[in-house]
């Protein structure tokens, strides 16, 4: 028989991992709901999931590939851009969806208890669907151009994990902040738009002067992730030592996001 205590005299509380695991089925159903509802009653249905990255790719290829002629070495520009896009689309999707996840489920939060963290977590899971689609596009493009994956490809899961944690930590931070300050809801689209240009998705890091590189990697941990994706998939560039700084920042962001989320969780139903 389970046994639970709520005691206000105990100040320190940690995340109950066991409880999260008990709610793993809720996590799957919520993820399924998001995924199912997204293209409900659309004519093109799932095809939209392909269309969006494809359109972005075409625009990038024209603007950065043909007009500005970004130097991508021996790699055709579309492949170069796609390797960055796989990481970035995942990140932007999860940040915007996880960031809004609590506000969008206000009613549920006020009517029933479940570990609130399930909401942003489910979004990180749904994001993998979009990730797979862009990744499929990348594979098709690589076959088309006859590009073979680099020998570092085995490092890809590591960078994917880093992307997931980076996206989650920003998403959790924003979701918890929007509970109190709705201002952050308006920050999301803004941040994603600027972020796209502040991350080496469409261009390469060697356009950034050396003296700004540290700042670049520190402010935007996605720089390390995108560079890591590119290095492990097509072997371009190298792992910059600053990548470890990006990793450190991601970990700090993640831990602080969990602490802040836990703090807000107690009053969530009252102030949402």
């Amino acid at each position: 028989m389970s046994y639970s205590t709520i005691d206000t005299s105990k100040k320190i509380s940690f995340f109950d991992i066991r409880e999260l695991l008990r709610y793993k089925d809720l996590f799957y159903t919520l993820a399924y709901r998001e995924y199912r509802v997204r293209y409900a009653q659309t004519f093109l249905g799932f095809f939209w999931a392909f269309l969006q990255p494809l359109a972005t790719l075409v625009i990038f290829s024209f603007v950065f590939g043909k007009a500005i002629k970004v130097d991508t070495g021996a790699i055709p520009y579309p492949i170069f851009a796609l390797t960055g896009m796989v990481a970035w689309t995942y990140f932007s999707f999860v940040v915007s969806q996880a960031g809004r996840s609590l506000i969008n489920s206000q009613n549920m939060i006020q009517k029933i208890y479940f570990p609130r963290l399930v909401l942003p977590l489910a979004q990180a899971f749904v994001g993998l669907v979009d990730f797979s689609i862009t990744f499929l596009l990348l594979i098709v493009a690589m076959v088309w151009y006859g590009i073979t994956p680099s020998p570092h490809i085995w490092y890809l899961p590591f960078f994917l994990l880093m992307a997931i944690i980076a996206a989650l930590s920003v998403g959790i931070w924003i979701s918890a902040l929007t509970i109190r300050y709705r201002d952050f809801m308006h920050v999301i689209p803004f941040m994603i738009q600027i972020g796209l240009y502040a991350t080496p998705v469409a261009y390469s890091t060697h356009y950034i002067p050396e003296k700004y590189q540290l700042l670049y990697y520190c402010i935007n941990p996605m720089v390390g992730v995108v560079e890591g994706f590119r290095w492990s998939i097509i072997g371009q560039g190298a792992i910059h030592p600053y990548t470890f700084i990006s990793l450190g920042i991601v970990i700090i962001l993640f831990i602080t996001s969990l602490i802040y989320f836990k703090k807000v969780e107690k009053v969530m139903a009252d102030i949402i």
């Binding site: 005299s9 009517k111 139903a269």
Partner: peptide, 8 residues
């Protein structure tokens, strides 16, 4: 759903 101010 919500957390008490004081008590157990």
């Amino acid at each position: 759903i919500t957390y008490p101010t004081t008590g157990k």
